[in-house]
Amino acid sequence: MTANRDSGPLLSVEGVSKTYRSGRRLADRLTGRPETFVQAVNNVSFGIERGEIMGLIGESGCGKSTLGRTILRLHEPTAGRVTFDGTDLGALPDAEMKAMRRRMQIIFQDPYASLNPRRTVAEIVGLPLQLHGLATGRGALREKTAEILEKVGLKSMHLDRYPHQFSGGQRQRIGIARALVSHPEFIVCDEPVSALDVSIQAQIIQLLTDLKQEMGLTYLFISHDISVIGYLSDRVAVMYLGEIVELGSVETVLANPRHPYTQSLMSAVPEVDRPGHRSRVRLTGDLPSPLAPPPGCKFHTRCPLAIDICRQKAPVAESVGPGHTAACHRLHENLSLLEQEAS
């Protein structure tokens, strides 16, 4: 490892886009209807420093999971470049990419769907060790697997059990053990707590923060829950319809959100601390279909501040403070939905 590599961000994402071809029915093909595309991720750029937790927040269908998977090359990006520890992942041949996967892992949202019901815990968690040749012999394999289970709060007596014998929270611990067993450096946490009950959610969040300290991990933490992101991330990227609309440190973005979407997202979260003390931004309508995204700024169909230019031209992200960027045509007018409604 060169000194140069150590100094840069661990992961950098430059202009990444991911487009899916939308299903075309036979009738569509026969009548020669043109193909339609879903632009799930559109020209996204950011970097993640070593040891950092980058939060990625957005509503369902905004492309946050696709982005997480595209970064790991579980999906090939349509455009753009992902660099991990100085290596351009897109340029790696398959064999080297496979070796690289030891260092970058993912934890999935659904602890029921993401574990093979026909495999024991030892097989599920031990698989990465076998794939990457990290343990030779049955004894060593079991020993390393048991070791990681202890780390995530399970016991070696659980080794020969099947996923259905565990509760949701325990299954998520198995998923975490599988991601950590190869001692990766970077983990995409894709909504790892949103399927869990409040008390179990707190256990898993605490576990993930403890493990990060202990094992020196870097996370991309994907969530739709502002409270979770606000509690544990260092920086946050706010995504809307495939684009990052605001990015910055959690303190600045959540204390002083500049994009109207971030502002409305913040005001929509009910909090126990100060009920009724916040002004409510009323967003009307639903997320537009990514099959037919609106022209101009993609948020203009729901934005209370939209003016003519927003309907015609897409805004470009600009700096609004140290390390804080937002993409909105009306940034300089210093409008805030939050204050406006309060007055």
Partner: peptide, 16 residues
């Protein structure tokens, strides 16, 4: 006490 909140950053949450 289990609720993650922005105001609790840096503190440990106390899960049940």
């Amino acid at each position: 006490g289990s609720l993650p909140r922005l105001s609790l950053r840096g503190q440990r949450i106390e899960p049940i």
